[in-house]
């Protein structure tokens, strides 16, 4: 069995601890579904927490608009599940993006070496 190196171990632990901390904090519950700072400012000044003047553009194809997940009534589990989905998506996109960036860097280095040797 391949031994996991320290860097990957720390990455795995950080991911699990983050999700564990999110679950614990949601359960306490410190979580508050009230308006955030900017929404409260909009509410104080205009009387509407989601003050959005008429816009020519609206994006209606979000799979989880406003962090809503279909057929889930449990607010605690629901928020955690959305956190898990979002974290996994974020993790994969960043991982893929950075790997791609580094692969391009390595191939450029190799090309430069070949040219140098020629």
């Amino acid at each position: 069995m391949k031994i996991i190196n320290r860097t990957n171990k720390i990455a795995i632990y950080t991911f699990l601890i983050s999700l564990g901390a999110l679950a614990a904090l949601l359960w306490i519950p410190i979580y508050l579904a009230g308006p955030d700072g900017l929404e409260q400012v909009q509410y104080d000044l205009t009387g509407n927490g989601e003050y959005e003047p008429e816009s020519n553009f609206s994006f209606d194809w979000s799979p989880f608009p406003d962090y809503e997940f279909i057929n889930t009534d449990n607010n605690y589990g629901h928020t955690w599940l959305i956190g898990l989905i979002g974290s996994i998506i974020t993790c994969f996109i960043i991982f893929g993006g950075f790997k791609l960036l580094l692969v391009k860097r390595q191939s450029e280095k190799k090309n430069a070496e070949i040219i140098k040797n020629v």
Partner: peptide
């Protein structure tokens, strides 16, 4: 670790 910390900030 960059990927995981980004995911942690998202969470």
């Amino acid at each position: 670790i960059i990927s995981v910390i980004t995911a942690m900030v998202f969470a």
